[in-house]
Simulated scan of single mutants.
Amino acid sequence: MDRPSDTGDGAQTGCGDYYRQHALWARRAADSQSWMIDLLDKMAECGAPYPADMREKAVWLRQMMGQAADVLAAQGLAYDEMLAAGGPDNSRAWVEYEAMTRRHAELLPRGLSFE
């Protein structure tokens, strides 16, 4: 399911689903950069000129999007755990979720944040 409308029932995406959905998109972006890196390598093998920094940028983007995907997936799990522990009405669960959110935000690549 890529979007809530894909279910056909008009269901709203929950916060945990939101994180998982964006983790999937980030993982797809990382995978597309792997494809681009392979393409650039093949072009270089054939002697085709391309800016040398293109491969470097593709490697960087693959790493950043892979890291973002991992953190977003972990944030989705943290949200689900908070809900399972009683949700925002359980002050301990909420405080633990907020602390986990801060830790996850610190793990995100520069320029990306939950806050």
Results as ranks from 00 to 15, higher is better:
residue 1 M to E: 14
residue 2 D to L: 11
residue 3 R to I: 12
residue 3 R to D: 15
residue 3 R to E: 15
residue 4 P to W: 00
residue 7 T to L: 12
residue 8 G to N: 01
residue 9 D to L: 09
residue 10 G to H: 02
residue 10 G to A: 06
residue 11 A to G: 08
residue 13 T to F: 05
residue 14 G to L: 11
residue 16 G to P: 01
residue 17 D to I: 05
residue 19 Y to S: 02
residue 19 Y to L: 04
residue 19 Y to E: 01
residue 19 Y to N: 03
residue 20 R to K: 12
residue 24 L to T: 13
residue 25 W to A: 15
residue 26 A to S: 14
residue 28 R to H: 12
residue 29 A to E: 04
residue 30 A to L: 02
residue 31 D to E: 13
residue 32 S to W: 00
residue 32 S to T: 00
residue 33 Q to S: 09
residue 33 Q to D: 10
residue 34 S to G: 15
residue 34 S to N: 12
residue 40 L to P: 00
residue 40 L to Y: 02
residue 40 L to S: 04
residue 42 K to I: 09
residue 42 K to N: 13
residue 46 C to N: 14
residue 48 A to L: 15
residue 48 A to N: 06
residue 50 Y to R: 09
residue 51 P to F: 09
residue 52 A to T: 03
residue 54 M to R: 06
residue 55 R to G: 06
residue 58 A to P: 01
residue 58 A to N: 03
residue 60 W to D: 14
residue 60 W to F: 08
residue 61 L to P: 01
residue 61 L to T: 02
residue 62 R to V: 01
residue 62 R to A: 13
residue 63 Q to M: 12
residue 65 M to H: 04
residue 65 M to R: 05
residue 65 M to S: 07
residue 65 M to V: 01
residue 67 Q to N: 07
residue 67 Q to E: 13
residue 67 Q to Y: 02
residue 68 A to P: 00
residue 69 A to S: 14
residue 70 D to V: 05
residue 71 V to T: 03
residue 72 L to T: 08
residue 72 L to F: 11
residue 73 A to W: 05
residue 76 G to L: 04
residue 77 L to Y: 04
residue 79 Y to V: 06
residue 79 Y to M: 08
residue 79 Y to A: 02
residue 80 D to V: 10
residue 81 E to W: 01
residue 81 E to Q: 12
residue 81 E to S: 10
residue 83 L to Q: 15
residue 84 A to N: 11
residue 84 A to M: 10
residue 86 G to R: 01
residue 86 G to H: 05
residue 88 P to D: 10
residue 88 P to Y: 04
residue 88 P to W: 03
residue 89 D to V: 09
residue 92 R to M: 08
residue 93 A to Q: 02
residue 94 W to G: 00
residue 94 W to P: 00
residue 94 W to N: 12
residue 95 V to G: 00
residue 96 E to D: 15
residue 96 E to P: 02
residue 96 E to C: 07
residue 97 Y to E: 00
residue 98 E to T: 07
residue 99 A to C: 04
residue 99 A to S: 13
residue 99 A to K: 10
residue 99 A to L: 09
residue 100 M to F: 03
residue 101 T to N: 07
residue 101 T to Q: 10
residue 102 R to T: 12
residue 102 R to V: 14
residue 102 R to H: 09
residue 103 R to L: 15
residue 104 H to N: 14
residue 107 L to T: 07
residue 108 L to Q: 06
residue 108 L to H: 03
residue 109 P to T: 05
residue 109 P to S: 06
residue 112 L to S: 06
residue 112 L to V: 10
residue 113 S to R: 10
residue 114 F to Y: 06
residue 115 E to P: 13
residue 115 E to L: 13
